[in-house]
Design a protein around this nucleic acid. Structure first.
Lengths: 191, 191
DNA sequence: TCAAGAAGGCATCGAATGATTACTTACTGA
DNA sequence: TCAGTAAGTAATCATTCGATGCCTTCTTGA
């Protein structure tokens, strides 16, 4: 297989692996097994595990940012229009069906005490904020949108959508966070 | 030293250690060094590294929840009063001066793919939500409060308060998230 | 004084990890 | 046909990790 194609394959496998267990918790061997190649080959392609993670993190956040940019570019965005914000929310909601990217992003955030990872995390966060500025909304409005997205991220991370079954506080928080789209999200996850 | 006192000391050291590097990224030896005891002794006190982390996670989230409960109990809370919500926000803001607890909490969230950790994380999230229900606010209002708190957590995790210096998207997001309290927070951090 | 129990370290084990080296295989162009 | 190169693996190394077992030290009460 061409090195370029193989590299792409390993990157996608690494994204899945890191999404599961984070930076420290994922071995290069786990990535290799997920990709179906040998562990030394993974190291050879990317140099070090850290460089591989930085690539995976950058690509994951890019994916999220691009989804926002696509929605905003699709039709004129009116920052005063609720339905336009709903379009944006629905896009993120759709993105949640594949949790991989946001899991990697969150793992990147908590691994920010590693300086190189922190740099990428801060840059990515700024890029997303920048992309949302194309909505024409003021900074406070964008901040609120991101805040709500972060809550959704956390809820997905801890598995609230699947586990919030019996009545209780977690269930209430999950339902008022995900709204009526929750059953669909859980069904998609189980499929 | 009495076993009980030593245990408490190690728990606090473990909280600091896990706050830095998370569950997978922190060795029992790192905890031991932070506590000034031998590594086998740490394992002996808590059985396994996982059990130690579960304790640390539970205690950290408890600390956050208790801070909220204290504010709500301090004087009658009016869910329609902006100043009452500001009291609550300020309490959390004050809590951010010691990042340890929220760092541990976030590390617990992303480590939720380990089933035991996920269970504790979900329970803690529910407990915090429950505590905030004592404000008398409806669920949506509480959810918004938590969402904003989660954004602050992320910003702290990636070191935005210290690193958002030159003008740019990250700086704008940081300033509109932390408001005028930002310089104070950074100063306290550097002290 | 001394036995007993609690506190805690030392030595060590087996497994896992990231990385390096040397090797094999397969394709390509002259 | 054969030299050269790209793709990929097996073997291995030095660390690090969580955990176990055994020993030492100190206190305390009879």
């Amino acid at each position: 297989m061409a090195a370029e194609d193989r590299r792409e394959l390993v990157l996608e496998a690494a994204t899945r692996a890191f999404a599961r267990s984070g930076y420290a918790g994922t071995s290069t061997d786990a990535v290799a097994k997920e990709a179906g190649v040998s562990q030394p080959y993974v190291v050879r392609i990317f140099g070090t595990k850290l460089e591989l993670f930085l690539l995976v993190l950058q690509r994951s956040v890019d994916r999220i940012r691009l989804a926002f940019e696509a929605v905003i570019a699709a039709s004129p965005f009116d920052a005063e229009s609720d339905s336009d914000w709903e379009r944006l929310s629905l896009a993120y909601f759709e993105l949640l069906k594949d949790r991989t990217f946001l899991q990697v992003m969150m793992h990147g955030f908590v691994a920010s005490s590693t300086e190189e990872i922190g740099e990428v995390a801060r840059r990515c966060m700024g890029d997303v904020f920048d992309a949302l500025r194309a909505t024409g909304a003021d900074d406070d409005r964008i901040r609120d949108f991101i805040a709500y997205g972060m809550l959704l991220n956390i809820m997905v991370l801890i598995g609230a959508p699947e586990h919030a079954t019996e009545p209780g506080a977690l269930t209430a928080l999950t339902q008022c966070s995900f709204g009526h789209g929750l059953p669909e999200l859980v069904a998609h996850r189980r499929a």
